[in-house]
């Protein structure tokens, strides 16, 4: 069952917006069960990288290959929903929940691509549909239990406190049964204790669901303690990629983060 190759294999990804090269020939692979962090100063192209990989943008050139759910697929030019169905899910930097739906319904939306019932199923409710719906609820409730939101199942998403919204977004992404989870600044705006909980949650999810994780994060403490590998971007180019310890010693990374003087 264990796949030998990387879950995600990105080769020479380049993304141009008109004359601006937002990402310049970045290569990155993620092995099964690995947690890789993507870091870099603001505007380095991290979120653009995410958007290319998840299909929101079509990259100018390069290859994106995903090996999940027993198949290997080239993702370039596929629609976001198609990519999610192939086994990749994401969260957003600025939380994008469905504000007027309940917490449970938010997670159940994630089940959409793993369920089949059609309009006729919805209208006539044959046993198959009812069973599918019950399963959906059960799985979603289980995920909410994992992220600790069971007390709020019936609350609408916009009534949730900030940290809970972040966790709900993760639960929603998990409901799509991903092999690779992309987290865009999951700890943004969290206090240290919330960040610690988040870290525990991410590790737990990886353990339980055989998950690979790619995350963008500015909280260096979290990045250093969580990730197996760190990839550093600056102005759209990759300036380093290795273990957290090595990256933190890399002079070019220090320069990118702290400016010229730190070099001297």
């Amino acid at each position: 069952m264990a796949e030998a190759g990387p879950v995600l294999d990105v080769r020479n990804l380049t993304m141009d917006f008109g004359g601006l090269r937002a990402i310049d020939s970045v290569s990155l692979d993620i092995m099964p069960g690995e947690i890789v962090a993507l870091i870099g100063p603001n505007g380095a192209g991290k979120t653009t990288f995410f958007n290319c990989v998840t299909g929101l943008y079509t990259p100018t050139s390069g290859e994106i290959l995903l090996s999940a759910r027993g198949q290997r697929k080239r993702l370039n030019g596929l629609k976001p929903n198609h990519i999610t169905a192939l086994g990749m899910a994401r969260t957003f930097q600025n939380i994008r929940l469905f504000p007027h739906m309940t917490v449970l319904e938010n997670v159940m939306i994630g089940r959409h691509c793993r369920t089949r019932s059609s309009i006729f199923g919805a209208i006539f409710r044959p046993p198959a549909t009812r069973q599918e719906e019950a399963e959906s609820i059960e799985i979603s409730y289980g995920l909410l239990k994992e992220v600790g939101l069971t007390a709020l199942v019936d609350e609408t998403a916009n009534n949730l406190p900030y940290g809970a919204q972040r966790r709900l977004e993760i639960a929603r992404a998990m409901a799509t049964e991903p092999a690779l989870l992309l987290l865009d600044e999951p700890a943004a705006g969290m206090n240290p204790s919330e960040t610690r909980e988040l870290q525990a949650l991410i590790l737990r999810l990886r353990e339980k669901h055989d998950l690979s994780i790619l995350l963008i994060e500015h909280d260096m403490k979290l990045v250093m303690s969580l990730s197996d590998r760190v990839c550093v971007l600056e102005y759209g180019t990759q300036i380093a990629q290795s273990t957290p310890e090595e990256v933190s010693r890399d002079p070019r990374v220090i320069k990118a983060y702290l400016g010229e003087e730190a070099d001297a």
Partner: peptide, 26 residues
């Protein structure tokens, strides 16, 4: 029945946030 079905939820998700809706596989 439609409203509380898989399809109905997808409609609402579409109304609430089109990008997130697509990213969730709809």
């Amino acid at each position: 029945r439609l409203k509380y079905s898989r399809i109905g939820r997808a409609w609402m998700a579409l109304r609430e946030d089109e990008i997130a809706c697509q990213a969730m596989g709809i």
